[in-house]
Nucleic acid binder design. Structure first.
Length: 972
RNA sequence: GCGGGGGUGCCCGAGCUAGGUCAAAGGGGUCGGGCUUAGGACCCGAUGGCGUAGGCCUGCGUGGGUUCAAAUCCCACCCCCCGCACCA
């Protein structure tokens, strides 16, 4: 194994394919109920198949697989199933864009297909087929399956399905009947982002750039300004209704289109755009369009504010007819736009004359101060406009000016108007008070608008619309919340534990959630066929479906047989077998078999996924289980991991830095990926994929492989059984044990750290002590391969077979009885030797001379007695009295020194059990190593011998910590 | 704004829910040595400062506090990241 790294990786990839084939052909991971064996049912949410998966997904599935493989080695009957998610709108949206010939989508999907298909003809054909969303979904499902297999996941593929299948639809239908039965479904209206082109609600996924620049719905207050003589009511939309006290005039854009329309008996005036928006916000009300006219027609008229103040309508070009209502009231004291627009009119009288208005009309208009902000004197808008040097109402600096004033006043401003309603109140409170009052008195209407202009990916305008009779999942029941939060708090295992609170918060935060739409792939609501169940809501208890789906297929059961009564019987044990059999046309024995499958596998022992799922999918998963199933079938444990970034940056299509799972199998290696991903970060940490670290991991794997092969093929030196070999095995099995404990706690990184990195370091130390590779490493190789099998299953399987394993390692067992190798004595003694090396180095560094001879002096037997007595709790003087009886007087000072060293923690407790001659022997056995490390001749002496030879420092020796005397070069 | 998580040595990253055995695991990088025709790989060593004998000092965002003892506990402050719904 002296090949280059790339040759090594090529070899790895080849054995990976080989073992994947063996596992597949021998159906190693197909799991069937075995009443004699404990079961372990682990699931990871199925992926959404609209594109290839990347290494972030791979992290989650790999961790799931490591745990599945570990549990299998621990003797569990493990079921790890997988399916594919295709319901919802994104797949349809992509199909539509491909059908429409959107160049970006076409080229992206073409490149995706090329990842799996080399024949250019076929690529074109497949791309063409993507106009059918099911074809697209099935293509990626098929290839994600291929990718998963290439990573060595131990999945029972017989249970694979996708969520667009009729069989699955029947299951979801049953689920919704149950949810309705339990009172979880309700209807009501609510506001959504809505596309005028598609005439459909469209969310973040469908809106251009919404992933980077989110679209929010915000509420404006449409304040009514009444024209005299019933001529109409202008709706002036504002985010700051508290400024109504300072309103001096109205602004309309003279060049925009305005309309007059009837709504609930009132004649209203807004921009034409706003009229359309209002229509969508009031779908149950008829809005009658009366007249359309340019804004200039409104100029010069006077309208009365809700406060009874009459103000003129003036022209302003900054007014956007597509924002709010196209009518705004002017409050020049606090709004920079209003202030500058007023100044523009005062400065350029021609602007008004153009519309036949008397320019003097603006002379009497002046800002009215209504808000005080500490540190700001005069009118805030004026101050900021002047300090920023704003030229006119077209100056882009106005945006910044507005947001500064807005923020400052919100946090620090308070009202200085006379109205007792708000007098002295902070702006943020006054705003709410005024808004409520205006709405209640009918002096304002609510107007919903987006925080920014938005278009759908096909270019359609997005507005806010109200959806009536929307279906909701209603999670508001306090009793339900309590049941769940108690369960999560007391019974559900969450790893890492710090996420537990997030679950409880999430359950408490959930209210009503829309669960159906009129568009997308999915299952129709059983009681309202117009609606399609939304895709997160149809994927909450499907783990139950895994337990029987392969049986349904085996028997060729038709979807029509999957009546609700069948699921009632299989999943809930409700109903009579024979009646259900008659109703479904299925054999009663088969029904029992399905029931047994479910009863054996359920509940889910562990669901592993990534943290963004906590507040949605995982919460629904818990709630729906709690609502539908008895408690014994509720989820047992949930584990989570954070996402993956690359070289410090988020992976994204736009940056082009995504590493797809496909690349792993072809350019890296499955085992390398698994090892790196498991080791590179704790579950609760974002994993930063760094190529530099990946290749050093590969180098370590190669080194590991070389060591194993050297040992099993005899390129090693034989050594006898001695203190070092006992030390090696003890350390080795302690790491195994630590790795096991870590995995039991789902600390995957800690496990890899122990069984791979720490053992590699241990082997290095062992080889260093021996001076070459010792053959007795062989005695632990089998166990080493066993414990590494969950992370690097292919390589360990290969090495296992090379060393003569007749059965598959993946179905072998985890090491047992490892404690019998623990050997404290050997560890203490070898640590002592290494301690001597360390001490010598420290001395040499301080003295800055080269050592020639080193005397290593082992402490006298009586010093051990000091420690023994001290350990028993003897005071110093009692120790002295006790010992003097044995060794005679004259040693009091030395006894005191040993005692003090012990109290300072300088003596390991374990040494008291180790005879002095063992200590001497260990040091003598290892004196070759000591000499090699220190570059000096070593002589090991007992303290008494050293004393008689007058070796200095002899008296400094302590049990387990020899005295050291160094003769340096050039010294006598 | 509300809620959650975090700031550790040149870099990444453990440890911090049970305070001492932590100058602080592991990996990367850098430097020195070995091996080699050379490079790579591999092996050994160094990588806060000081020290003529195995030791001492300074240190884990900032500033306080509790304690015989704090990276670990408490308080305040600064900074960073994530979620906030109808979307998978």
């Amino acid at each position: 194994m002296n090949s280059s790294l790339s040759e090594y990786l090529g070899w790895l990839r080849s054995i990976e394919k080989k073992w994947q084939k063996v596992w597949r052909e021998q159906r190693v991971f197909e799991a069937n109920p075995d009443p004699g064996k404990p079961k372990f049912f682990i699931t990871v949410p199925y992926p959404y198949t609209n594109a290839p998966l990347h290494i972030g997904h791979g992290r989650t599935y790999t961790i799931g697989d490591i745990i599945a493989r570990y549990k299998r080695l621990k003797g569990f009957n493990v079921l790890y199933p997988m399916a594919f998610h295709i319901t919802g709108t994104p797949i349809i949206a992509i199909s539509e864009m491909i059908a429409r010939g959107d160049p970006k989508t076409l080229s992206r999907y073409e490149s995706y297909i090329r990842m799996y298909v080399s024949d250019e003809e076929r690529v074109k054909e497949i791309l063409e087929s993507f106009k059918d969303p099911y074809k697209l979904a099935e293509f990626f499902a098929e290839n994600v399956h291929v990718d998963f297999e290439a990573l060595g996941y131990s999945i029972d593929w017989r249970r694979r399905f996708h969520t667009g299948e009729p069989l699955y639809n029947r299951f979801v239908t049953w689920q919704y009947l149950k949810l309705a039965e339990k009172g979880l479904l309700s209807r009501g209206s609510h506001y959504v982002t809505y596309c005028l082109l598609h005439k459909q609600p469209e969310g973040e996924d469908d809106i251009e750039d919404a992933d980077v620049n989110p679209v929010e719905i915000i509420e404006y207050t449409g304040v009514k300004f009444r024209l005299p003589g019933g001529e109409g009511v202008l709706i002036a939309a504002t985010l700051r209704p508290e400024t109504i006290y300072g309103a001096t005039n109205l602004w309309v854009n003279p060049e925009a289109r305005y309309v007059r329309f009837k709504m609930e008996g009132e004649t209203l005036i807004t921009s034409h755009k706003a009229f359309i928006k209002l229509q969508h916000q009031h779908p149950e009300t008829r809005l009658e369009l009366l007249e359309e006219f340019p804004g200039s027609m409104l100029l010069g008229k006077r309208a009365k504010s809700p406060l009874g103040v009459e103000v003129p309508i003036l022209p302003a070009w900054f007014v956007d007819p597509d924002l709010g209502t196209g009518v705004v009231y002017s409050e020049p004291s606090d709004a920079p736009y209003d202030y500058i627009a007023l100044m523009d009119l005062k400065r350029d009288k021609g602007l008004l004359a153009k519309y036949d208005l008397d320019p003097s009309i603006v002379d009497s208009i002046n800002p009215i101060k209504i808000i005080e902000v500490p540190g700001v004197s005069g009118h805030y808008a004026q101050a900021i406009v002047e300090s920023m040097g704003v030229r006119d109402q077209f100056d882009p600096k106005l945006e910044d000016a507005t947001s500064i004033v807005y923020k400052e006043e919100f946090y620090k401003g308070y009202m200085i108007v006379e109205d007792p309603l708000v007098k002295g109140k902070p702006v943020r409170e006054a705003r709410e008070i005024i808004k409520r009052k205006l709405l209640e008195s009918g002096d304002a209407i609510s107007f919903l608008e987006l925080n920014r202009k938005a278009r759908c990916r096909a270019g359609g305008e997005i507005i806010v619309a109200k959806i009536v009779d929307q279906w909701f999942l209603d999670y508001t029941s306090p009793q339900l919340k309590k049941t769940l939060t108690d369960y999560i708090d007391k019974k559900l295992i969450v790893k890492p534990e710090k996420y537990k609170k997030a679950f409880i918060d999430s359950i408490n935060w959930l209210e009503k959630r829309p669960c159906a739409r009129k568009r997308g792939i999915g299952t129709r609501l059983p009681f309202d066929q117009e609606w399609i169940i939304e895709s997160l809501s149809d994927s909450t208890i499907y783990m139950a479906f895994y337990t029987i789906v392969h049986k349904l297929r085996e028997k060729g059961v038709s979807p029509d047989s999957l009546k609700p009564s069948l699921f009632d019987y299989v999943f809930l044990g409700v109903g009579e077998r024979d009646k259900v059999a008659a109703e479904t046309g299925l054999n009663p024995g088969f029904l029992e078999e399905l029931r047994r499958e479910f009863e054996y596998w359920y509940p889910v022992d562990l669901r592993h996924t990534s943290t963004p799922h906590i507040s949605n999918h995982l919460s629904f998963y818990l709630i729906h289980h709690a609502v539908i199933f008895p408690e014994k079938y509720w989820p047992r444990a949930i584990s989570l991991n954070e996402p993956v970034i690359r070289e410090g940056a988020k992976m994204s299509k736009s940056k082009g830095n995504v590493i797809n799972l496909r690349d792993i199998a072809e350019k890296y290696s499955a085992d390398l990926f698994r090892l790196y991903i498991a080791w590179a970060a704790n579950l609760d940490t974002v994993l930063d994929w760094r190529d530099r670290d990946v290749s050093s991991t590969a180098e370590l794997m190669q080194k590991f492989t070389r060591i194993i092969l050297d040992v099993i093929e005899g390129r090693c030196v034989s050594t006898g059984e001695d203190v070092v070999s006992r030390w090696f095995k003890s350390k080795f099995y302690k790491s195994v044990k630590a790795g096991e404990e870590a995995l039991e706690n789902l600390q995957v990184r800690e496990y890899v750290q122990n069984v791979f990195f720490n053992i590699m370091n241990l082997v290095d130390r062992y080889r260093d002590i021996r001076g070459s590779t010792p053959c007795d490493i062989r005695s632990v190789v089998a166990d080493w391969l066993r414990v590494l099998n969950p992370v690097i299953p292919h390589l360990t399987e290969e090495l296992w077979s090379i060393m003569g394993g007749k059965t598959l390692l993946s179905t072998d067992h985890w090491p047992v009885d490892v404690e019998k190798y623990f050997d404290e004595t050997a560890e203490v003694l070898v640590d002592e030797v290494e301690g001597v090396v360390e001490d010598v180095k420290s001395i040499v560094e301080a003295v800055k001379k080269n050592p020639r001879e080193i005397y290593v002096v082992v402490a006298s037997e009586w010093k051990r007695k000091v420690v023994e007595l001290a350990e028993k709790g003897f005071e110093l003087r009692d120790v002295i009295r006790e010992l003097s009886k044995e060794i005679g007087p004259g040693k009091e000072k030395l006894i005191a020194e040993v005692y003090r060293a012990w109290r300072a923690g300088g003596v390991r407790r374990e040494v008291t059990g180790i005879p002095v001659d063992l200590e001497v022997k260990a040091l003598r056995d290892l004196s070759e190593y000591l000499g090699r490390k220190t570059g000096a001749r070593i002589e090991v002496l007992l303290e008494e011998e050293a004393e008689s030879r007058k070796i200095p420092k002899a008296e400094k020796s302590l049990p387990g910590k020899p005295g050291i005397y160094i003769v340096f070069e050039g010294q006598g």
